[in-house]
């Protein structure tokens, strides 16, 4: 599997498209995987890829998609859980890399869309557009299985490994700044109840 472990850096990663990658991820889901999507364009594109009951669309609490997904992964260790988030969001909660690494959930994969910008507020630059490399930060926090997606095929291969091999995984894709394919319907209680039904959860 030589295409799985290329030594890809942020500079070497091909510019990809969030809508296309989200649809590739969703197409690979078998049905029961939970997907927790962070605010803004990340969850707009998840919404636009088809509203599965196992999807959670976060509204407002910027930076908390990964810790919410970690809670899901802890509560249901048999279920694969994906956290989707943007670079601006995860930059707000970098400590969560260390938290995930120390808890070490085998069933959690974090996917970050990195366009180097707060796209939704006018494309102001984030720290990843200058010096911050999220894969290197994640590795430094103890997430050993952290990688840049070199291209679409490599993204698919990394997601495939997250399905079949123990996590935690971190996949970062460098993406362009095109608009998402839809807008999430913002009804928090409906989102939560659908998600809990999808996860067959009651507490």
């Amino acid at each position: 599997m030589s295409n799985i472990e290329p030594n890809v850096t942020r500079d070497g990663a091909v510019l990809l498209n969030r809508t296309a990658l989200t649809r590739r991820l969703v197409a690979k889901l078998k049905s029961e995987e939970a997907v927790v999507a962070g605010i803004g364009h990340t969850n707009f594109d998840l919404w636009a890829s088809g509203q599965r009951p196992q999807n959670f669309y976060m509204l407002g609490s910027m930076g908390l998609a990964t810790p919410i997904a970690l809670g899901v992964a802890i509560a249901q260790p048999q279920r694969k859980v994906f956290a989707l988030d943007g670079d601006g969001s995860i930059l707000m909660q970098l400590g969560s890399f260390g938290t995930v690494a120390s808890v070490a959930p085998k069933n959690l994969a974090i996917i970050i869309w990195d366009n180097g910008a707060y796209h939704i507020t006018g494309a102001q630059k984030t720290l990843t557009s200058s010096t911050v490399d999220l894969v290197e930060m994640a590795k430094g926090a103890g997430l050993k299985q952290a990688q840049w997606a070199a291209d679409e095929e490599h993204f698919d291969a990394l997601v495939g490994r997250a399905f079949t091999e123990d996590g935690p995984w971190l996949i970062v894709a460098k993406i362009d700044q095109t608009k998402p394919a839809g807008v999430t319907e913002r009804d928090p209680v409906k989102i939560r109840l659908n998600f809990m039904n999808g996860l067959k959860a009651s507490a």
């Binding site: 609490s61 908390l64 809670g71 509560a75 400590g95 260390g98 809990m196 959860a201």
Partner: peptide, 26 residues
């Protein structure tokens, strides 16, 4: 008990929230 000691209180809140939605009280 399952115990998690994250870096910030916001994480602590979000982890409990995710776990509740997946059926575990925290």
């Amino acid at each position: 008990f399952t115990v998690v000691a994250p870096a910030r209180e916001e994480e602590a809140v979000a982890i409990v929230t995710g776990a509740y939605m997946a059926g575990k009280r925290g």
